[in-house]
Amino acid sequence: MELLLPALGYFVWTLVAFLIVFFILKKFAWKPILSTLNEREKNIADSIATADRVKVEMAQMKNENEAMMQKAREERAVMLKEAKEIKDKIVSEAKEQAKLEANKILVDAQASIEQQKNAALTDVKNSIGNMVIEVTEKVIRRELAGKSEQEAYIRNLADELTNGRKN
């Protein structure tokens, strides 16, 4: 049983050694250890507060970014709608302009055709009139009774042919 119960001398000396080490640690080591622990606790608390603040700021920024993206989508939709309306308007105006130009060209062409038709009719009438006159002249000349008149008629016709006039 001696092994289980320490002797009183060992107990006292162990207690004295413990108290000496305790007081030395209290005087020299306890304050720096506590101040280091307090600093570390403060740094951890500051880091947690900073992390929370950054988390809140990130959430705000995310919300702002989503709002900006939604606004940009809406503006894009409006711009696309306006561009489509402008395109449709330009196409419509171009079609109208093309119709007006086509109608103008058609009217001008019809007027030109009518003018050329009238000119052709006038030429035909003049040509027919000239032919009638020439035929009448020729008929009258042939009806001339004498031989000398017929010879003169033949010479006259030959002269007209050589001068380039058509009979």
Results as ranks from 00 to 15, higher is better:
36 T>M: 09
74 E>N: 04
66 E>I: 12
75 E>V: 00
82 E>D: 07
86 I>D: 14
47 S>M: 12
44 I>A: 01
74 E>R: 00
57 E>S: 04
84 K>V: 07
59 A>C: 02
78 V>G: 10
53 R>C: 09
74 E>Y: 10
73 R>F: 11
46 D>G: 01
65 N>H: 09
39 E>M: 07
46 D>N: 07
59 A>W: 00
81 K>M: 08
58 M>Y: 02
60 Q>V: 01
82 E>C: 04
64 E>V: 04
72 A>W: 03
53 R>E: 13
38 N>H: 15
80 L>S: 09
51 A>C: 02
41 E>T: 05
42 K>T: 01
68 M>R: 13
43 N>Y: 04
41 E>A: 05
85 E>G: 09
77 A>F: 07
74 E>A: 08
68 M>L: 15
78 V>M: 14
48 I>C: 01
40 R>P: 04
66 E>Q: 07
60 Q>H: 09
84 K>W: 14
56 V>S: 06
44 I>N: 01
66 E>R: 15
71 K>T: 13
73 R>S: 14
55 K>H: 10
60 Q>K: 04
43 N>M: 09
80 L>V: 13
82 E>W: 06
79 M>R: 13
49 A>M: 01
69 M>T: 15
87 K>H: 07
82 E>L: 06
45 A>V: 00
43 N>T: 02
50 T>N: 06
54 V>Y: 12
49 A>T: 06
59 A>Q: 08
79 M>Y: 08
54 V>I: 13
63 N>R: 12
41 E>Q: 05
37 L>M: 12
62 K>H: 11
73 R>E: 15
47 S>D: 01
56 V>G: 10
69 M>E: 14
80 L>W: 03
36 T>H: 15
47 S>F: 05
58 M>S: 13
39 E>Q: 15
80 L>F: 03
77 A>L: 03
44 I>G: 02
41 E>G: 10
66 E>N: 07
73 R>L: 12
77 A>E: 09
79 M>P: 06
70 Q>G: 14
69 M>N: 15
85 E>V: 11
85 E>F: 04
82 E>F: 00
36 T>D: 11
54 V>T: 14
36 T>V: 14
61 M>S: 14
46 D>P: 00
75 E>M: 06
87 K>R: 09
73 R>K: 07
86 I>W: 05
47 S>G: 02
39 E>F: 02
67 A>F: 12
52 D>G: 02
68 M>G: 10
77 A>R: 11
67 A>Y: 10
53 R>D: 12
37 L>A: 13
39 E>Y: 03
54 V>L: 14
46 D>S: 02
85 E>Q: 08
37 L>H: 15
80 L>H: 00
69 M>P: 05
68 M>Y: 08
48 I>V: 03
78 V>K: 12
